[in-house]
Simulated scan of single mutants.
Amino acid sequence: MLTIENLVLQRGGKPVLHGIDLAVAPGTVTALVGANGAGKSSTVMAVAGALPVQSGQVLADGLPLLRLRPEAVRAAGVAVVPEGHRVLGELSVLDNLRVAAGGLPATEVAGAIDAVLQTLPELRGKLADPGRSLSGGQKQMVCVAQALLARPRYLLIDELSLGLSPVVVKRLAEIVQEVARQGVGVLLIEQFTTLALSVSSQANVLVRGRMAWSGTSRALLAQPDILHSSYLAPTA
């Protein structure tokens, strides 16, 4: 399991996360939903080693992650797809993938890229194209591919659907489910709750930096009042 225990985080001297608990099982998709400012991205950044925390614990299969540098967190089996589908615009798609595979032995890079392209076959015809020429959806696929090249046991995706068309979002949702079927535990951070709950088995609602609700996605879908109240709550 990837577990977050009693995580407390401040940014700019202001409390952002107030002792949250969260768990992600291998081979499943877990949703983390909430309004803007609820603390979703801060949670991801803390787990990824990009933000210092005040207290709490993050464990990947029992291995403590807090206070590790981002590259050490990635090496420990936790990869992140950050918000904003950013790629290296001057490099080709293939070179973007090669950069992401830099931590692998040189003899394994080509095979690892080919394996990732089996999950994201849309990128095969784009390998020679510069990153700047891609659509938003294609850039997001490259970002997912880059994270998968770390061969993670756990994948954190921040705002998968941001700024993308419904057709692209539907395809990305299929990719997330395929990744989970391959045994990876996925934490999906989303404002688009319909998407998040449609692909996940477990769900968590974050309100003003506190975990307001945890349970199955099906149970949350049956209680729309919980979601309604969480999105009307003031931000953290």
Rank of each mutant, 00 (worst) to 15 (best):
V93F: 00
G209D: 01
Q191K: 05
A48N: 04
A35P: 00
A112W: 01
V24G: 02
T107D: 10
S41Y: 10
S161E: 12
A101I: 01
A236T: 15
M1S: 02
V144N: 01
Q57V: 01
V73A: 13
T235K: 04
V169C: 10
E83C: 06
V87N: 03
R67I: 00
V24S: 06
A145C: 13
R132I: 15
D158Y: 07
Q223M: 09
L59I: 11
L120W: 11
E108A: 10
E5Q: 14
Q177A: 09
V144P: 08
R124D: 06
L59F: 06
G125N: 08
M1Q: 00
Q146L: 01
P64N: 09
V99K: 04
A203T: 09
A23R: 15
M1E: 05
S165R: 14
L197T: 03
L127V: 05
E108F: 08
V205Y: 04
R151S: 08
A112D: 06
E122A: 13
N96T: 04
L88T: 08
L66A: 05
M45V: 07
E122P: 13
D158Q: 02
A212H: 11
Q57P: 05
V44N: 02
A173E: 10
R153E: 06
G13C: 04
E5S: 12
Q182W: 03
V73L: 05
A233V: 03
M141F: 07
V169E: 02
S135E: 07
L148T: 12
V142R: 12
E5V: 14
G13H: 11
L117H: 01
P224Y: 10
A25K: 15
P234M: 05
A35M: 05
K170L: 07
A75Q: 04
S201I: 10
R181V: 13
S200N: 14
I4L: 12
H228R: 14
M141T: 07
R181D: 00
R11H: 15
V81C: 08
V47F: 01
S165L: 12
L156T: 03
A48W: 03
G77Q: 00
M1Y: 07
S41Q: 05
A79S: 00
R124F: 03
L59T: 06
G77F: 01
A23M: 14
L66S: 02
A236L: 00
H18T: 09
S55D: 02
C143F: 02
G49W: 01
L149P: 09
G185I: 13
